[in-house]
Design a binder for these strands. Structure first.
Lengths: 175, 175
DNA sequence: TATAAATTACCTATCGGTAGGTAGGTTGTT
DNA sequence: AACAACCTACCTACCGATAGGTAATTTATA
């Protein structure tokens, strides 16, 4: 892993635990074994680092999801796949969704970071709308915003109360 | 309004836009017209201020809600009342829920602040469970976590995408 | 005359960012 | 092949600004 990749990885961990202001060039540099000034070689400003981080996070997320129609065709419920990706972020990583946290503090973010966070949600809503559509949902647009809202909210509350069973209960089908 | 109240009000505005690290004693002091050192007279440390802020926010929130059974008795749907309180936070204040934002960055918060944020959600879940119960809901505990998750998530996404119609669509009854 | 509330004047630590330099490798030209 | 020019990936040293916090003192109020 290159130093640049290591810096992004270290930044992701910190941001997902405490937001944009929860990492500094010095901390990142220490973690990967270079000097803080050298971080500027890879990322001219902190905003550049933040924007690239959100951009790559979004790309990885979408790649991990795959195509909703392809999932449907292979017998999977794409909404379950989507939910599972959130679950593993919470349970395995024990961290918030990067863009969920950044989105909440959107107003205080540098412009270029905020735009990348917006892209995350626009792409997610498009994916979920296609997924609900493939499921025969009569109002896929509404279902899409409800799905992502529920998951982001449940994730945040489970983190706050330090108990993943809240996430499980929130995402369980009503009996 | 006392200086102390003014400090809390100024802090609330800043935290609801950018989180715990989005306010400093200097900024707060400037806004209310005192010196930063004087803020320490009212709040020994930043954590004390943050904890008191979250505590009062929770109290105000619960007071504004009233009692679920009393609402029900007066012909109102308590869940609609609850939703409306979130809506006005988003539409009127144009800001995130204080504890929603703090909850997301829970891991990086001072202990005493984190405890107050936990209290917010525990109290909210208790209120919502009683409300769904009063509505005759067969699984009020599950409905409670789903309601607060959906609202916090929808609020965050509407803020991020700077479009309140996402909140409206997320909270609209499915047709 | 107490006490509350604020002041001045600091402190140490850290922040993002910049200036200037360097070792080692690559590319381009003759 | 030789050499100049350039690039990559760092370094040391430092900048002004800001962070949270403290001690001693003054001012205002009950």
């Amino acid at each position: 892993m290159s130093k640049k990749e290591a810096l992004l990885k270290a930044a992701e961990n910190k941001v997902r635990l405490g937001g944009y202001s929860n990492f500094s060039f010095r901390e990142l540099a220490n973690e990967v074994g270079i000097k803080s000034a050298s971080v500027h070689y890879h990322f001219p400003t902190k905003a550049d680092l933040g924007a690239e981080l959100a951009h790559q996070y979004t790309n990885s997320f979408l790649t991990a999801l795959g195509e909703p129609n392809a999932l449907k065709a292979s017998g999977k419920n794409p909404i379950n796949v989507y939910t599972q990706l959130f679950r593993s972020a919470l349970v395995t990583d024990r961290k918030m969704c990067l863009c969920g946290l950044l989105g909440a503090e959107s107003d205080s973010l540098p412009e270029k970071v905020r735009l990348e966070v917006k892209r995350f949600f626009n792409e997610n809503l498009a994916w979920l709308t296609a997924a609900h559509s493939a499921n025969g949902d009569l109002n896929p647009t509404q279902s899409a915003i409800q799905t992502v809202s529920l998951l982001e909210g449940a994730m945040m509350i489970s983190k706050t109360l330090d108990d993943n069973s809240y996430f499980e209960l929130a995402t369980k089908l009503t009996e």
